[in-house]
Each structure stands twice: as C-alpha cells, then as structure tokens.
C-alpha cells in the first residue's frame, strides 16, 4: 500500500534520513523502532508532506506522492497522529473530533464516524464537552487518535502513541491500535516502547541514524539478539 524508496531528507546541514527503504503492505501493522533522533518522526512527516524529501520517493497505491501537499494526502486517506498529540487545547472533545472530519461534507457520515470513535474510546464520549486542554495525558492521546480516525483513514501513521502513558494505559492503547487494524486500516507505527511495538507488528524495521539496519517480522525482531540488547534491555 505504501512504499518508501531510498528516501533522503535534509534539515539544512543535518542529513536526517540517508536512504530509507520500507514497505507497508495493505492491512498490516508495520512498526518502526529506533533511538531518539534516529529519524522516525522525520519519516512520517515526510510521508504526509510536512517535511520535503530531498531525494527518493514515496508511493501510495501505486501513485507517486513524494512532496505532495498534506491536505491532498489526507483527502486520499492517509492520516497522521503526530508526536506530542497536538490536540486543540481550547476546543471541546467533540469540536476536536469534528475538526478531524472537516473534509466530510455529509453530516450523517460525520455522525456515524463520531459514533465509531466513541465506541472505540468510550471515555471520550463521557468527556464530550470537556475542553481538550483539561484532559489527562491518556485521554488526550485517545483524542488525538480519535481525531485522526474521524478522517476514516486507510493508512494511519502513529508517532509514539504510548509517549508518557502509564503501563496499563499503554496496553490499552496498543489493544486499540490492533482493533483499528482489524477493521482494515493499515498502520505504520513509530514507537519507543519496542517490546509492545514488535509484539503487535506484522513487520518491523529498526532505524539507526537515518537508515534501516534490521528488518523482519515482529516475531523475528523480538528474537533478534541485537534488537534484544539495544532496544529491549535484555
């Protein structure tokens, strides 16, 4: 569904991605793990068109989408849950969600999606009229994911969804990600929590300073001794 080929990204003199190649098959969960500053967020931001690619290309459904405008890509069914959530702190939960569905002109469809998101996160329904900024960190993360789901994406890019969450909430979030995936959404997941990320992944890649070092299925990487030592602390 999504293919990244020999992608290079430069921030001025910083060469953040040095030829990344990866593949995201339809209906699968693909995890990307790596140390801080390895370039994980950069990959997602480049895919969605927030950061320009220096060279290489990104293909989505056999369509070259390298350096396309973000809003065009969202309209094509790619959504990003950004690092640090970036929910609208002064808007209520419902307003946040409705902004997510702004591309949908059909009111019934919006209502339907809202229902789906509330089914996925019952907590958000309870907090419907609460102001985003007063939500707890976990609720904010749910809201960020819910907001992206309002766009009914076919490909969901998640940037560190477990960041700053208590262990039991982390488990919840990963369970939700799996649920979203089971409903047919392809997922590209960036994570610091390597164990959980590899456990739910169909395929996984390890990123080291801008290049993919190790690739394989989630199970293979969990068994890999390098991965164990560097990312699983075993």
């Amino acid at each position: 569904m999504l293919a990244v080929e020999d992608l290079h990204v430069k921030y001025g003199a910083v060469h953040a991605l040095r030829g990344v190649t990866l593949d995201c098959p339809r209906g699968k969960i693909v995890s990307l793990i790596g140390a801080n500053g390895a370039g994980k967020s950069t990959i997602l931001n480049t895919i969605i068109g927030l950061v320009p690619a220096h060279s290489g290309n990104v293909t989505y459904d056999d369509l070259d989408i390298t350096n396309r405008k973000t809003h065009a890509l969202v309209a094509k069914g790619i959504s990003l849950v950004p690092e640090g959530r970036r929910i609208f702190l002064n808007l209520t939960v419902v307003e946040n969600l409705l902004v997510g569905a702004y591309l949908t002109r059909d009111r019934k469809e919006r209502t339907r999606r809202l229902g789906e998101v509330f089914a996925l996160f019952p907590r958000l329904k309870e907090r419907m009229t609460q102001i985003g900024g007063t939500l707890s960190g976990g609720e904010q993360q749910m809201l960020a994911i819910g907001r992206a789901m309002m766009q009914n994406p076919r490909l969901l890019l998640l940037d560190e969804p477990s960041l700053g969450l208590a262990p039991n909430l982390v488990t919840d979030i990963f369970a939700t990600i799996r649920k979203i995936n089971e409903r047919g959404t392809t997922i590209l997941l960036v994570e610091q929590n390597a164990f959980q990320a590899l456990k739910i992944a169909d395929y996984a890649h390890v990123l080291v300073t801008g290049t993919v070092e190790i690739s394989g299925t989630g199970g293979e990487l969990l068994e890999n001794s390098d991965v164990k030592r560097a990312y699983l602390g075993m």
Partner: peptide, 11 residues
Amino acid sequence: EDEIASTMLGI
C-alpha cells in the same frame, strides 16, 4: 488554535 496540527489534519 494550532496551525501545524490543522495542516496535519489536511486543512
């Protein structure tokens, strides 16, 4: 509220 977040939502 947040220009960058809006852009990410495709606005």
